[in-house]
């Protein structure tokens, strides 16, 4: 996988990066559900998950939480209500 400096990316680029990594993770997740002993898929799943978490952390620090219910911290004031909703972008 190419080394990307996530800090350098724009909000749109970073979101696309998250969508791409998350797509890989979803696809591998579904595959592993019916092939739980496939080691190659499992390694890929873990590798992409680590990368996905990195991008999400950078995104959330800059642009606010992607998830609520305790999965991401918020600075003041409560950031969850601030950033645009998916259909507003």
């Amino acid at each position: 996988m190419q080394e990307l400096d996530y800090e350098e990316l724009s909000r749109e680029e970073l979101k696309l990066q998250i969508q791409e990594l998350e797509f890989a993770v979803i696809e591998l997740n579904l595959f592993l559900d019916t092939h739980p002993t496939n080691q190659k898929a499992l390694m890929d799943y873990n590798m992409f998950s680590i990368e996905l978490n990195k991008t999400k952390n950078v995104y959330q620090k800059k642009y606010g939480p992607l998830t609520n219910f305790g999965y991401a911290l918020s600075s003041y004031p409560w950031k969850w209500v601030e950033s645009p909703w998916p259909w507003e972008e």
Binding site: K15, I18, Q19, F23, N68
Partner: peptide, 11 residues
């Protein structure tokens, strides 16, 4: 369920 504030695929 946990909601994620983004689409799975861009529109």
């Amino acid at each position: 369920w946990i909601y994620e504030k983004k689409l799975e695929y861009p529109v």
